[in-house]
């Protein structure tokens, strides 16, 4: 049976999603992108092939993400902006604004009722408010990144981290540590900072969808964001795979499946 592959070589992680002609997900995999994008792409492809129980060659492969041109077995590449929009619209087929918080950048993408992209924005040069920012902050606090969500959930204080520069934010955190602020409160403040960076990018009107690794691992950040916006935020299944899934949908479309 034909199958279609999307590979998203992101700044932090590389993801693969395999779908069939009915757009059903047959398998997926992810790994750190590391320094060898080609190897990471091959690894996730092979792993997802195994999960999908497919040995025959893929019908069509679309690569996306920063390393989209480093996937030699891809038939085509598309930007992660297009692929995220496509993936998100599959699950939420109405006009919406997608906020993707990735490893290296934040994307705000607007799609209309027919799924066409009407605009997009990416964060400015600084990595503040992205996954890289959380990694840096976790490192500063000497805690594992997967512990952030649990810590923030326990906080009942509102600590403000205001800078939009990662280095300045780290300095602010040092000041808070000196003031004796507890780690859980700092982490919540850091989540608040991620939200502020996204709010600075767009008025965020209408339906909001969020995707990306930060959202996948930090549901408390999403609930903080919902509280801030005063409305529900929609999250696709496997939010970290939205771009790879969108790429797989493009692969299917390319073959007229």
């Amino acid at each position: 049976m034909n199958y279609f592959v999307g590979i998203d070589v992101g700044a932090s992680t590389t993801k693969a999603v395999i779908i069939d002609e009915e757009k059903k997900v047959l398998g997926y995999s992810l790994t750190y992108s590391g320094a060898d994008f080609k190897a990471a792409a091959e690894q996730v492809f092979e792993e997802s092939q195994k999960k999908a129980r497919r040995k025959e060659p893929a019908k069509f492969v679309v690569a996306t993400g920063y390393g989209r041109r480093n996937v030699p077995f891809a038939d085509k590449s598309r930007t992660e902006i297009s692929c995220h929009a496509r993936g998100s619209f599959f699950y939420f087929p109405h006009a919406h604004t997608l906020i993707d918080i990735g490893g290296q950048d934040n994307k705000i993408i607007k799609v209309n009722d027919s799924g066409k992209r009407t605009g997009f924005k990416m964060n400015r040069k600084c990595a503040a408010g992205t996954g890289a920012f959380l990694e840096e902050m976790a490192n500063r606090l000497q805690i594992k990144i997967e512990k952030l969500n649990g810590l923030a959930e326990k906080s009942e204080r509102d600590i403000q981290i205001g800078s939009y520069c990662t280095v300045f934010s780290a300095t602010e955190i040092l000041t808070r540590i000196r003031e004796g602020v507890e780690i859980k409160d700092l982490v919540k403040g850091i989540f608040g900072s991620v939200i502020k960076r996204a709010l600075e990018m767009d008025p965020l009107e209408g339906n909001i969808v969020m995707s990306g690794g930060v959202v996948a691992y930090n549901p408390f950040l999403v609930s903080m964001f919902e509280k801030k916006l005063g409305k529900k935020i929609f999250i696709p299944p496997h939010p970290q795979l939205t771009g790879a899934f969108g790429a797989a949908l493009y692969a299917l479309e390319a073959k007229g499946g």
Binding site: Y66, I81, S82, R117, T118, K125
Partner: peptide, 15 residues
């Protein structure tokens, strides 16, 4: 940032 600029331009043309 060359990569960021080019990804933006490419996405713009896709749009």
């Amino acid at each position: 940032s060359e990569e960021q600029a080019k990804t933006n331009i490419e996405a713009f043309i896709e749009q």
